[in-house]
Simulated scan of single mutants.
Amino acid sequence: MKAYQLKVAILYLKPPIWRRCIVPAGISIFRLTIILRAVMGEPGSHLSGYKYSSLRLLFAGKMRL
């Protein structure tokens, strides 16, 4: 099974806060958002934005888990 290792960081913080995680290839944006929130410890009931710099994608939205 193909997978990707991601480095997830919160921008503009000093010192930087980041985590690494491995996700399966072909994961949906919805499932990726759930994983990112779990990895970073976000509660999931507020507006969040994600910038996928190597893929050049930006996703922002409010989702309740």
Rank of each mutant, 00 (worst) to 15 (best):
W18K: 12
I34P: 00
W18V: 01
P15M: 01
L13P: 05
S54F: 04
L6N: 08
P43L: 09
I17K: 14
L13F: 14
I17T: 11
H46P: 00
I34S: 14
L58N: 08
G49D: 01
I10K: 14
R37P: 06
T33E: 00
V39C: 02
G44S: 03
T33Q: 02
H46A: 01
F59M: 05
L13A: 10
S54N: 06
Y12I: 00
A38L: 10
W18C: 02
M1I: 08
Y4R: 06
G49Y: 05
P24Q: 07
I27G: 01
W18L: 02
I17S: 04
S28Y: 14
G41A: 01
I34Y: 11
G44H: 05
Y52M: 06
C21E: 06
P15C: 00
F59D: 02
A9M: 09
L32Y: 04
I22T: 08
R19N: 04
I34T: 12
R64V: 15
L47N: 04
V39G: 00
Y50F: 14
R20D: 07
P16Y: 06
A25Q: 08
L65V: 12
G44E: 05
K51T: 03
R56C: 00
G49E: 07
L55C: 00
L55Q: 06
I27Y: 13
S48F: 15
F30G: 02
R20N: 12
L11V: 06
Y52P: 00
L36T: 04
R64A: 15
I29A: 05
S53V: 15
L32V: 07
A3W: 14
I35R: 04
F59P: 00
